[in-house]
Computed example of a mutant assay.
Amino acid sequence: MSAHRDHDFIPSSYSRIIARELGLQERDLPRLLAGTDLPVDVLLAGDESRLTGRQQVQVLRNARTIAGAPELGLRIGRQLKPASHGPIGYLALSSPDLLTALQSLRDFLPLRIPFAQLDINEDGSWLRCELRITLQQDSSETRMLTECFAMALQSLVEAFLGRTLTEALFCFHFPRPAYYRAYGQYLQSMIKFEQPEDCLLIPRSLAGESNPSGDAASYAIARRLCAQMLEETPIAATAMTNRVRRFLLAQPLGSVTEADVAKSLYVSKRTLARRLNKEGTGYREVTEQLLSELAVRHLGEPGLSIESVALLLGYHDSANFRRAFRRWYGMPPADYRKQALMN
């Protein structure tokens, strides 16, 4: 068996996150993939390729060389929001309490990142979330992956709680790095180095913290509908419209801007606009079409109120959603739903 466990396969989406954090443009992408034997297409939105452990480690090495920044692991980890983990992240955020959310991540994470493991145990007044990276690589690469993992775990807990996590304790087995002062810019709780294992200690009192969204079921329905539409969207590297659409469907709606989308596709906003124009559309048209389609699908779910549909589509004011829906379909969403139920 290879030291880098070539039977482990990691979604290419994580390498796309690395490319975006580095601010790479299309011409720079081959540098990130040097030594992996992977085509540049794996870094394009919509690609569903999976990398071996060896290839993923090589991407990390290349990224470290390109960035020339020792804190790169923390920077990449900052981008690992729950949505980065696909349905697993949404499953966790749809859990009834924090402990269940963490257990969901523990149970399903190996399906997404086979070399990452999470063990959860009660330890006195703490909930111990032990992080384990099973890939074999040098100490600096292990540190980078552990930093990424710690940041991803913090992001999940904070997304669930709806606030910054300040009362936890991060423990790392490695010695305090030269850039240790930078940790405070990324991890909001206390930090200790040279500990027996890598883990996040969360106050046990938070384990039963209820989902603050109050509408976890609606969130799960929305994610399922987005996933269905994602499967229906053609994977076409040459079609910018499809690439934009696939990227938007993979994010919580309303959470990204046009600049974010352009960056994710390794182009400038101007280039994005030019390529969409060649396909006879524009960014606003793509997003409006997507929102209108999702609105109809959401309204087909009897468990979702009009207000819930508005929030799920990124409208914080349901009146704005109603106006948009009338513009799309010539009638209020409530009337559309009544007609659909009659047919």
Score class of each variant (00 low, 15 high):
125 S>F: 10
126 W>C: 09
126 W>S: 10
127 L>C: 10
127 L>Y: 04
128 R>K: 14
129 C>D: 02
129 C>S: 09
129 C>K: 00
130 E>T: 14
130 E>A: 12
130 E>L: 08
132 R>W: 06
133 I>R: 10
133 I>W: 06
133 I>F: 13
133 I>A: 04
134 T>Q: 10
134 T>F: 11
135 L>K: 05
136 Q>L: 05
138 D>S: 03
138 D>C: 01
139 S>P: 04
139 S>E: 09
140 S>R: 06
141 E>G: 06
142 T>R: 10
145 L>Q: 11
146 T>Q: 12
146 T>M: 07
146 T>G: 08
148 C>F: 09
148 C>Y: 11
148 C>A: 13
149 F>H: 09
149 F>C: 01
149 F>V: 14
151 M>A: 12
152 A>H: 08
152 A>V: 02
153 L>C: 02
154 Q>L: 02
155 S>Q: 07
155 S>C: 05
155 S>E: 08
155 S>T: 06
157 V>M: 01
157 V>F: 01
158 E>A: 03
158 E>M: 07
159 A>D: 09
159 A>M: 08
159 A>T: 06
159 A>Q: 09
159 A>W: 01
160 F>H: 08
161 L>G: 10
162 G>N: 05
162 G>P: 09
162 G>D: 05
163 R>I: 09
163 R>Y: 14
164 T>Q: 15
164 T>D: 15
165 L>Q: 07
165 L>Y: 04
166 T>K: 14
166 T>S: 14
167 E>T: 15
168 A>D: 14
168 A>R: 03
168 A>S: 15
169 L>I: 11
170 F>E: 05
170 F>M: 10
171 C>N: 09
171 C>Q: 12
171 C>T: 12
171 C>K: 11
172 F>I: 00
172 F>E: 03
172 F>M: 05
173 H>W: 07
173 H>M: 08
173 H>N: 09
174 F>A: 00
174 F>S: 02
174 F>I: 02
175 P>N: 05
178 A>Q: 12
178 A>S: 10
181 R>L: 05
183 Y>T: 04
183 Y>K: 01
183 Y>V: 12
183 Y>M: 03
184 G>N: 09
185 Q>R: 14
186 Y>T: 11
189 S>H: 14
190 M>Y: 14
191 I>T: 15
191 I>L: 15
192 K>S: 13
192 K>Q: 15
192 K>N: 13
193 F>H: 14
194 E>N: 09
195 Q>R: 06
196 P>S: 01
196 P>G: 01
197 E>T: 04
198 D>V: 00
198 D>E: 06
199 C>H: 04
199 C>K: 03
200 L>Y: 00
200 L>N: 01
201 L>V: 06
202 I>R: 00
203 P>I: 03
203 P>G: 05
204 R>S: 10
208 G>K: 02
208 G>L: 01
209 E>T: 11
209 E>P: 00
211 N>A: 07
211 N>E: 07
211 N>K: 06
211 N>R: 04
214 G>D: 13
214 G>F: 10
215 D>G: 15
215 D>H: 15
215 D>Y: 08
216 A>K: 07
216 A>F: 03
216 A>N: 14
217 A>K: 13
